[in-house]
Design a protein around this nucleic acid. Structure first.
Ligand SMILES: [Mn+2]
Ligand SMILES: [Mn+2]
Ligand SMILES: [Mn+2]
Ligand SMILES: [Mn+2]
Lengths: 220, 220
DNA sequence: TTAAATTTTTAGTCTAAGCTAAAAATAAAA
DNA sequence: TTTTATTTTTAGCTTAGACTAAAAATTTAA
């Protein structure tokens, strides 16, 4: 597995999460910040190796083997993110780029020991589930904040966008995993929301509400 | 800095430690397990970048800048080795290959936080000194066991060879860093030695004695 | 159902980093 | 000081991975 092959598998895996069925060549190209022609070449190679199913003009899909490899890379990525936050004082907006590098380190023992060292965490600092050794992943916790109704309460359990800029915005607003949140009002015109977190009340745009996962508290 | 460039700098750095003056192209090729022609190409590139001094047919030497880069990679390598042994239950014969990968991860913050997390260690699991951020390295502790005389005592502080096979041999004999050692006898014919470690007395060959560093205890 | 637009693939280049074989420079031996 | 041996460099090829431009297939629109 070269670094590039691993990154393609990961990209296809992530795209497959949402859009199921064959993943288009263009979609992969966009995700990878590369050109469709490069994707075609790589897809062919991955197909040769039995990691993706591919038929000309029909898009790609990971094989079982490919899925396992991808899940393993994501497992490594997320475990490293936990390590960086829990042990090395990184903030949640600083970890992704470093994890992009660390995820390619090859050592079974390393990752299993790291897992144990961290106490077998189930979620990374963004609330994303950590796959187990066999590639099994639990579902993402919670539902999108945007889908909650007026007066619903819950706990923030994850973010969809984990770009540094978004996370920094959340920090500024005091929005973090584990915080209690209540929907005070929804504005139908622009889908903005008024919310309360720790006695602070403020407005957030649709954009924001669409990128935060909340676990609903049972009705009182 | 590509991965390959970093490995060349490291190789030249290590060769320069022993053999000072210009490092021959062949020496680099051997160290890197590659061909002299490939080395010539790379040396030219590194020279362009101001990382090595190079004149055709005259051998190579790191510039100040090149030395700093190399020392930094070695710093990372050795800090990761400490991490693996101290935190992740690796043995000293298991760490090198993984550290060869980890040393190329690029993040200032990562390495500085790791350093702090480990309590600013001064030596790696093989007794090698860890360079500081500015590339300063303290001297290797101790002298080679082979140079000790009959009845000399000391403490084992390092190994010269850190191949897995050598380290496993040492484990089997109960030879480890920090152990007290006494030279009971030297055999001039084959340069073997009779030694005592923790009440165990046994013979070691010249080969072995030439790869262990000992800090001499002051005479009684 | 033909025509236009879009997507995907192919063909041909480019660069980094290897390699082999041959040429050139340097070092060692006669 | 020639001759011979060794070291180093050059020249030319190879592979992975990316790119551009053109061709082919598929999809959408007329
Ligand atoms: Mn991430
Ligand atoms: Mn994450
Ligand atoms: Mn090492
Ligand atoms: Mn070491």
């Amino acid at each position: 597995m070269t670094l590039s092959e691993e990154n393609y598998l990961k990209a296809i895996y992530h795209l497959g999460d949402v859009h199921d069925g064959g993943i288009s060549t263009n979609a992969i190209a966009e995700q990878m910040n590369t050109k469709a022609s490069s994707v075609t070449d790589m897809i062919k190679k991955l197909s040769e190796k039995g990691l993706v199913h591919y038929k000309r003009y029909k898009g790609s899909e990971l094989t079982e083997k490919g899925t396992l490899v991808a899940a393993n890379i994501i497992r490594k990525h997320r475990l490293w993110e936990v390590f960086l936050v829990e042990k090395l004082n990184f903030t949640w907006d600083e970890v992704h780029d470093v994890a992009e590098q660390l995820e390619h380190i090859k050592s079974e023992k390393l990752i299993n020991e790291l897992d144990a060292f961290l106490g077998f965490p189930k979620h990374d600092p963004h609330g994303d589930p950590i796959p187990d050794k066999d590639g099994n992943v639990s579902n993402k916790l919670g539902k999108l904040l945007i889908t909650l109704n007026k007066n619903d309460r819950g706990i923030i359990v994850g973010v969809k966008d984990s770009s540094s800029s978004f996370l920094k915005y959340l920090d500024k607003q005091g929005i973090a995993l584990g915080k209690k949140i209540k929907v005070l009002d929804k504005e139908p015109f622009d889908n903005s929301m008024k919310i309360r977190i720790k006695k602070e009340e403020f407005m957030i745009s649709q954009q924001i509400a669409n990128n935060i996962y909340v676990k609903l508290s049972p009705e009182a």
